[in-house]
Amino acid sequence: HIECVVCGDKSSGKHYGQFTCEGCKSFFKRSVRRNLTYTCRANRNCPIDQHHRNQCQYCRLKKCLKVGMRREAVQRG
């Protein structure tokens, strides 16, 4: 199976330009649609994997963008 490029979980297909799991797909869509801004409580390099992906939204969104998920691919409302 193909892994989610963000957290390594099982990918459910290509979403917003990259293969991601449902969790990262939904997180990215929600973040972009609502134009959410997050803050990192650590050093902005938190581990984002299957077990830690919900611990830091700032670093999760940063990783989504770093691996090539595209904001412009998210349809507005």
Rank of each mutant, 00 (worst) to 15 (best):
E3S: 09
E72N: 06
V5I: 15
C24S: 00
G8A: 11
R53S: 07
G8D: 15
T20H: 03
R30H: 04
N54S: 10
F27H: 02
D49K: 04
Q55K: 10
P47H: 05
G13C: 00
H1E: 11
C64R: 00
I2K: 05
A42L: 11
C59R: 01
V74S: 06
K63R: 08
P47C: 06
R70P: 07
E22W: 09
Q75P: 12
C56E: 00
R33Q: 15
A42H: 09
R53H: 06
C21R: 01
K29C: 02
I2D: 13
C40W: 02
R71L: 10
F28D: 00
L65C: 05
K10F: 10
C59P: 03
Y58P: 03
K29Q: 12
V5Q: 15
T39W: 12
E22A: 11
S11Q: 11
S11C: 15
C7M: 01
Y16M: 07
K10D: 14
I48G: 03
N35T: 04
T20G: 06
H51W: 11
K14W: 04
L65P: 01
F27I: 01
H52A: 12
Y38C: 01
Y58T: 01
K62I: 15
G23V: 04
G68L: 03
S31Q: 12
R53T: 11
S12E: 13
R76C: 13
V5P: 15
Y16H: 01
L61E: 04
Q75I: 09
Q18P: 13
C40L: 01
T39A: 15
K10L: 05
K66V: 12
S26I: 02
L36V: 11
V74E: 11
G77L: 08
E72S: 05
F28I: 04
V32L: 05
L65Q: 12
Y38N: 01
E3A: 11
N45D: 10
Q75S: 10
R30I: 04
Y38T: 02
A42K: 11
R41Y: 13
L36W: 08
F19W: 11
G17K: 04
C59T: 02
G77D: 14
E72M: 05
C59D: 02
E72L: 05
C46A: 03
Q55A: 10
G77R: 09
L65E: 13
R41K: 15
C64V: 01
K25C: 13
L61W: 10
H51T: 08
K14V: 14
K63Q: 07
E3L: 10
V6D: 01
Q55R: 09
T20Y: 07
C4T: 02
N45W: 10
D9K: 08
H52D: 08
C24I: 03
K14P: 15
R70F: 11
F28C: 01
V67I: 08
T37Y: 05
M69I: 03
R33H: 10
R44A: 13
G8E: 12
R34A: 15
T39P: 04
K63F: 04
R70Q: 14
G23E: 06
C46G: 02
N54Q: 08
Y16A: 04
E22Y: 04
G17R: 04
S31T: 10
H51E: 10
Q75L: 11
F28Q: 01
R44G: 14
H15Q: 09
S26Q: 15
R60E: 03
H15T: 05
Y16P: 04
Q18M: 13
Q57N: 14
G17P: 03
C40M: 02
P47D: 05
R76T: 12
G17C: 05
K29E: 14
F19V: 05
S31H: 07
L36R: 09
D49Q: 08
I48F: 08
A42I: 01
K62E: 15
R44N: 14
N35R: 06
Q55H: 11
V5Y: 15
R70M: 15
R33T: 13
C64Y: 03
Q55W: 13
Y38G: 04
T37D: 14
C24F: 01
N43P: 05
G17T: 05
Q75N: 08
Q55E: 15
H1W: 07
C4H: 00
Y16G: 07
L36Q: 08
S31V: 07
R41A: 15
Q50G: 07
N54C: 05
V5E: 10
K14Q: 15
V32W: 01
C21P: 00
G23H: 15
D49S: 10
F27L: 01
Y38E: 06
C46H: 03
A73F: 12
K62D: 12
V32Q: 05
D9F: 10
V5C: 10
G13D: 12
V32N: 06
C59L: 00
G13K: 09
G17Y: 04
A73T: 10
H51M: 12
T39Q: 12
Y58F: 13
E22T: 12
E3Q: 08
R71W: 08
V67F: 08
C4V: 02
H52M: 10
V6K: 00
A42M: 07
H1K: 15
A73G: 10
T39L: 14
F28G: 00
K62S: 11
S11L: 05
C40N: 00
L65N: 05
K29S: 09
Q18F: 14
T20Q: 04
G17Q: 12
V74R: 04
F19M: 07
T20D: 00
G8M: 09
S26W: 11
H52E: 13
R76N: 14
R76H: 13
N54P: 11
K63H: 08
V5D: 09
K63V: 05
R71D: 11
S26V: 13
R34V: 07
D49E: 09
C24A: 01
H1F: 04
H1N: 13
K63I: 04
C56S: 02
K63T: 04
C21T: 01
G68N: 06
R34M: 11
V67C: 08
V32G: 04
V74A: 12
R41N: 15
S11D: 05
Y38V: 05
C4I: 00
M69L: 10
Y38D: 03
G77N: 10
H52G: 12
V67P: 00
Y58H: 12
V5S: 14
F19G: 03
N45R: 13
R33N: 08
G68T: 02
S26N: 05
K10R: 06
Q18W: 04
C56A: 03
E72K: 04
T20L: 08
I48C: 05
T39H: 04
I2Y: 15
L65D: 11
C21E: 00
Q50E: 12
G13R: 06
C59K: 00
R41E: 14
A42T: 05
